[in-house]
Design a protein around this nucleic acid. Structure first.
Lengths: 157, 157
DNA sequence: ATCGCCCTTGAACTGCGCTTCAAGTCAAGG
DNA sequence: CCTTGACTTGAAGCGCAGTTCAAGGGCGAT
């Protein structure tokens, strides 16, 4: 059913929803294996679609291609989906959880900004001004503190 | 209090927590105005710290520097923080919400992968294989469907 | 006056993830 | 036969967000 390996790069690109140039690029950097060839042209089996799908998901979650390569290599080479896979996933999970938090913070900021009625950044809590001593102001955390739909800066008490 | 404009670029960099090279870069692309100078050296007032803070926040909210420039130009010139701000935020909000979904999907995937006992990707539902007709397979949604701690692929019924 | 330190410049470089290009091969269809 | 269309290659280019570098200026302190 899928041992035919008869898909051309163009067909793979169409079905996976990526550009042929991306596929060749992935091959170049070792993300995809060298496929078999007919008349010099790449021939793929359908399993490459799964791999491309995985690459897409991982990418959209913020993995770099190098990291995706690590993941794929771990799965392909080691003892099945062994320790390598699990430890990589554990490590990545922490990063993804951090990304999740940051993304939630951004969402909050944008929701406030969407309905902000402030006349200028000077009066708006979305745009804080650091104190004299603030050497390492943590802007992203300050922004998270903006809640509700009133983003006016509290009158500096 | 802040009309002195006596901060050097190094001091601004330290207090805002960015590199001097970034500040010059922002100036180059019009994100920051040309500051006054003494002996050829840039001299800033403290209000630049607010601007840099804003740039940082907006960046972490997913805005590109070009978009941030749009925002700043809009705030500085037009009717306060007007329509431009709100429409850009609305647009960005959609993007961030999509990112949020993808990140959640990846988190689910990684959590499953962390405790996956499958011997090979072939038997594992974490690596789906698309059907013959799937021209626009929605991988991110498929991955979300992997729930619980058993990631074995259901025997193709 | 010499040292150390901070500042200046433009150009080039980095890393990432592709995309585009020129020049060529091959098989099928009219 | 000739065209069409999909494929091949390596190299170069792009957009982004900076960083690094060489070569030099100026100032306060010792």
């Amino acid at each position: 059913m899928d041992g035919f390996r008869e898909l051309t790069i163009g067909e793979v690109a169409r079905r996976a929803g990526v550009a042929t140039s991306s596929i060749r690029c992935y091959e170049r950097i070792g993300l995809l294996p060298q496929p078999e060839r007919t008349h010099g042209q790449r021939r793929y089996g359908t399993e490459v679609l799964g791999k491309l799908g995985f690459i897409g998901v991982a990418q959209s979650a913020g993995f770099k291609l190098r990291e995706i390569k690590e993941l794929i290599d771990g799965v392909d080479s080691a003892d099945g989906m062994g320790e390598q896979m699990r430890s990589l996933s554990s490590r990545k999970l922490e990063e993804v959880e951090a990304l999740l938090e940051r993304t939630k913070a951004m969402k909050g900021w944008l929701e406030t900004a969407k309905q902000c009625g402030c006349a200028s950044p000077t009066e708006c809590a979305l745009f804080p001004v650091p104190g004299e001593e603030a050497a390492d102001a943590d802007w992203s955390l300050r922004v998270v503190q903006v809640k509700g739909d009133d983003c006016r800066r509290p009158p500096a008490a």
